[in-house]
Amino acid sequence: MKKIVRMVLVLTLLGLISGLALSLVSNYADPIIEENEKEATREAIYYVLKSADSYETEEVDGKVIYRALDSSGELVGYAFTASGGGYQGTIRLMVGVGPEVWKVKGIQILESSETPGLGGKIRGESFKSQFRDLVARGEIGLVKSGEPERGEIKAITGATISSKAVVKIINTELSRVRSILSTGGE
């Protein structure tokens, strides 16, 4: 009997001390972590919408959309995150679109575990820059070889699946955002 009491006592004590210590550390660290995440989002938004100077966060139908404004307070476009399956694991993107939502202004890769050297090239400037001011009235197209036309981008050599995944993720989320913005009172 005495043994059991001692066991329970020791474990409870340990749990209490550990819980106390952890709550102290997390009190200290949580605000910093949150600030880091905000900073990363801010950087990504300013990357995809070059002329943005400030932004407001709003949530419509469960989708977080960032309204970006320039220095004079004009609306320059919207940014939103999009994610989906890549060749390996999930790809998470920040997508920036113009105020009328028919032009993609730019994209940034927030998270991807594509094969380095092949699919990993989606992080590269030469792939991402294809999405700068890309006219996308319907869906964005993808060409494997030859020159891309209006509204199309060229796949990375040897990494067709990753390129396709990025385009598909953008197209899916773009149409969702379009319908949200057209019914969402804007």
Partner: peptide, 20 residues
């Protein structure tokens, strides 16, 4: 069980500090 409580506490501390 006690070892695990102690170890996991320290691991959580490290993780939070790294993230911060």
């Amino acid at each position: 069980a006690s070892f695990m409580i102690i170890i996991s506490s320290f691991v959580t501390v490290v993780k939070l500090l790294f993230e911060a």
